[in-house]
Design a protein around this nucleic acid. Structure first.
Length: 474
RNA sequence: CGGGCUGUGGCGCAGCCUGGCUAGCGCGCUUGCUUGGGGUGCAAGAGGUCCCGGGUUCAAAUCCCGGCAGCCCGACCA
């Protein structure tokens, strides 16, 4: 029997993941080697689904995919002062190649603003070349001091959009459009509610005018930054000399944006829904949506059961687990651990009554359905499970969001348990630093203020327009 | 880089303090029979530089010295 499970709330993700999700076989979506992640087929299948859904939305909003080099000349990084300063500590640098010390080292891309800026400068001359809307699916390398499965690994897969526009207004529109795409994918597909907002000046992307993020709450109440969208202003345009001639015939620097989500989303997905029995995957992203387990005792039952199982499964594209030598119980646990949303059981009893048993992964409910209705019932169940997962997550977010009126109150709330604490706070690095004293951060300043509007900053006492999200984060 | 801990079949661990039988257990794996509506049971089997180097000793997984690696907690961060 599986040993005493722990809950995601009780321990941190890594420990829970280790004890519950990893069971020493292919149920595990990934493993770590020297801070880098190996994504196994089970995990990668989820990534592929996310990739497909995101990519379709990027295309629908006019973006094209392209690919830029992994190795970036070190000098490129240095062109934007704030950017290099922000990334310098986490760069991996290639200094020797072909057995010789290089004249100029290469940097393994931590992100591609610089090399893309370099090419944008070559490709953009006229306002007719704008907007230039690009996306890249790639791996990036950031030498983090501490790694966590899926959430922070030395190398990770992501998607980075890079666009250039003629005006700031247009660029900002793009920044918010892509933030909406991320929020929609997170909420509708991942069943993971998020808060859209602006990062504080202290937390924004190095080299950006401002950064926007979607923040999700994990089952232990900690925050996870699930996606970012940056208004780069003309910073990179100026650093890389990306100029265009506008309709008035004058030269101007382009306004750029960049935005990205990574394999961290898989971590967020796991931490949002999974339980002590293993993974729980939302139907819309589950690589295998339903499995039919045939049950038979005697040889003469085997044939008819399997035949019926395959016939029924075929109608709805289900998988039949017809592995020999495995008991049905073992099969149930097998699929449960892998997060398959629906498992059906079909045995001699059901054959006689023309029924089939349908079980949901998230709440464990089991119902007996006439075979004639199973196709429809499966579709309905997948649909309601998707909705239920979302509302459960949303309820959790609501239940764990609280107001605070002083810095001491924020501290005492967070000392007690992980919450999203809504407080009035000035966008000032000094205020960020004050929160850091008890390991909290401003997650973002919500775009939609669902609270009481203006108030006084709990650190400086100055008037501010709205509350911000304060939380401990991964 | 600071603090704590751990290195023993594929995975998880016991043994170490107090040196001594053939290095053990659980899971997993292989083969056969059995079983099958929530992890069937039985039997046989494969699989080990006990992290590395040195020292003490008649004898080292165990004690001593020195390395190395990994994990956790902090600082950095998607």
């Amino acid at each position: 029997m599986p040993e005493s499970p722990i809950t995601p709330r009780a321990k941190d993700f890594a420990a829970w993941y280790q004890d519950v999700v990893l069971q020493g076989d292919m149920a595990e979506p990934a493993e770590i080697v020297k801070g880098c992640m190996v994504i196994k087929p089970n995990g990668y299948a989820v990534w592929e689904n996310l990739q497909r859904e995101l990519d379709a939305r990027f295309k629908a909003t006019g973006h094209q995919n392209a690919y830029f080099p992994l190795l970036i000349p070190e000098s490129f990084l240095k062109k934007e002062a704030e950017h290099v300063e922000g990334f310098a500590p986490e760069l991996a640098v290639v200094t020797i190649a072909g057995g010789k010390k290089l004249e100029e080292p290469y940097v393994l891309r931590p992100t591609s603003e610089t090399i893309i800026g370099h090419f944008f400068a070559k490709w953009i001359q006229s306002w007719r070349d704008l907007p230039l809307l690009m996306n890249q699916w790639a791996n990036v390398v950031r030498w983090e001091l501490r790694t966590r499965m899926f959430l922070r690994t030395t190398e990770f897969l992501w998607q980075e959009g890079h666009t250039a526009h003629a005006t700031h207004a247009e660029a900002l529109e793009e920044v918010l459009r892509m933030l909406d795409v991320y929020a929609e994918v997170a909420e509708d597909l991942m069943a993971m509610p998020v808060i859209k907002g602006v990062k504080t000046r202290g937390e924004k992307f190095a080299g950006a005018l401002s950064s926007y993020s979607i923040e999700a709450m994990m089952q232990n109440g900690m925050a996870l930054q699930a996606g970012t969208s940056h208004d780069l202003g003309q910073n990179f345009g100026k650093a890389f000399d990306v100029k265009f001639q506008n309709k008035e015939g004058q030269l101007d620097y382009v306004w750029q944006t960049s935005w990205g989500v990574s394999t961290r989303l898989i971590g967020g997905l796991i931490m949002s829904h999974s339980d002590d029995k293993g993974l729980v995957l939302p139907p819309k992203l589950a690589p295998v949506k339903s499995v039919l387990v045939p049950i038979y005792r005697k040889d003469e039952e085997r044939g008819p059961v399997l035949e019926a199982a395959h016939r029924i499964a075929k109608d709805m594209g289900s998988k039949v687990d017809d592995r020999e030598g495995q008991s049905p119980g073992a099969k149930f646990f097998h699929w449960e651990r892998r997060g398959v949303p629906l498992v059906m059981e079909l045995g001699p009893r059901d054959l006689a009554s023309n029924n089939i048993v349908l079980k949901r992964r998230d709440n464990g409910s089991k119902q007996i359905v006439p075979q004639s209705e199973i196709v429809q019932k499966v579709a309905e169940s997948l649909d309601s499970m998707q909705k239920d997962l979302y509302s459960a997550a949303q309820q959790r977010l609501r239940d764990n969001t609280v107001l605070a009126e002083s810095i001491d109150q924020v501290e005492s709330i967070l000392a007690e348990s992980n919450k999203f604490v809504m407080a009035h706070l000035k966008d000032d690095p000094a205020c960020d630093a004050r929160l850091k004293e008890f390991k909290a951060t401003v997650r973002n300043i919500p775009l939609k203020d669902e609270f009481d509007g203006p108030g006084k900053c709990i650190v400086t006492g100055e008037p501010v327009s709205q509350r911000v999200v304060v939380a401990k984060s991964y």
